[in-house]
């Protein structure tokens, strides 16, 4: 069954529905990692987005237990060149059961070029894509956050971290659990005093989809909390904390989404290859006007990849230290966080 992907700029790309025909729309973005399709598709940060895979073969190693980042496929459309049906056929069934439109046979390289030139933009998928694709991600965090408090216990009772859930990935919680911390996952709009009552040893402001402006009503609370507890912000969490301290953000023309983004520690010069998934970025100049300082920068485009507070136990990163998919070296950020919690680190340098 023929499928069309229509971009906001009017360009149409053709393909074939791999699963049953269904319409979908969302912000179209591309992912350049060569593995990790299962993690990407279940990552809540991709909520509301149509993901284009640049690697031409998707599905080769099937579906794995425990590789999903959430309970279901989060994206609103999947675009690829070839779906490889591996042995057991699990991958295709899994896609089918999600009801999300899956389009193959697409000239993904040209599509990437369109996105690179026109930017991340709204797109629709349909058998005949009509009208002008128009839309925004809007309050997408509210669609992925937990609706109730969930406790993820760790056997090793090193302490409790409250995770403010903007769309947290399972591996982020797993990384903290593995370090012996219990994690209490709370809805994104949980009032400050509720969090305080939990008496946390640290706070994790998680990743999540869309524009950090979604959180503008909560910035005062975020700032208060961050100043009070050892705080780690990842991706959306990083952007929310930065804006809470007065930084501004801009939308990138096209985001960083892949597993090969080099970041540099601005003081030590140490380089990490990181997993990334973001479409907004902190404005560099705005950091100078805030109490925060740049900790990491992107090697290729110089954009801000991490911030620290010079006197407080606050560290935020734009990249994904929990990886999944992607390189693991940035896991060391969790060590920094642990150090802050144990008061070994008074502020990150």
């Amino acid at each position: 069954m023929k499928a069309e992907i229509k971009l906001a700029d009017g360009t149409i790309y053709e393909g074939t529905f791999e699963t049953r025909q269904s319409a979908g729309e969302g912000e179209i973005v591309f992912y350049t990692g060569m593995t990790g399709y299962q993690e990407v598709l279940t990552d809540p940060s991709y909520k509301g987005q149509i993901v284009v895979f640049t690697y031409p073969l998707i599905g080769q190693y099937g579906i794995e237990d425990n590789a999903s980042e959430s309970k279901q496929i989060q994206v609103s459309g999947i675009v690829m060149q070839t779906l490889v049906e591996e042995d057991k056929g699990g991958f295709k069934d899994w896609l089918e059961s999600s009801g999300v439109p899956v389009v193959s046979g697409v000239d993904t390289r040209a599509l990437v070029r369109s996105i690179r030139q026109g930017g991340d933009q709204w797109a629709v998928i349909d058998s005949k894509a009509e009208g002008n694709p128009e839309g925004t991600l809007g309050g997408v965090i509210s669609r992925v956050t937990t609706n109730k408090m969930i406790v993820h216990e760790s056997m090793n009772k090193k302490g409790t971290i409250v995770c403010i859930d903007y769309g947290v990935k399972a591996s982020m919680i797993a990384a903290l659990n593995a370090r012996g911390f219990s994690v209490v996952q709370v809805p994104y709009d949980t009032p400050r005093r509720v969090i305080e009552q939990l008496n946390p040893d640290g706070l994790l402001f998680s990743n999540g989809p869309g524009d950090p402006a979604q959180m503008s009503a909560h910035l005062d609370d975020v700032k208060e909390l961050a100043l009070r507890y050892p705080t780690l912000g990842i991706c959306m969490g990083h952007q929310v904390i930065a804006t809470a301290f007065g930084c501004t953000v801009s939308k990138q023309r096209y985001g960083h989404r892949g597993a090969n983004h080099p970041v540099r520690h601005v003081k030590t010069g140490e380089i990490w290859l990181t997993s990334q998934n973001h479409g907004y970025v902190i404005d560099s100049e705005s950091v100078n006007l805030s109490p925060l300082e740049v900790l990491y920068e992107n090697v290729n485009d110089g954009s801000i990849e991490g911030l620290r507070h010079p006197h407080e136990r606050i560290v935020t990163v734009q990249f994904h230290p929990e990886a999944s998919p992607g390189p693991k070296e940035a896991m060391a950020i969790f060590d920094v966080f642990e150090g802050m919690i144990k008061k070994e680190v008074q502020h990150v340098s």
Binding site: T32, A259, N260, V299
Partner: peptide
């Protein structure tokens, strides 16, 4: 881009 990145193939 710089040499400190990992090639992505399509």
């Amino acid at each position: 881009t710089m040499a400190s990145f990992e090639p992505a193939l399509d």
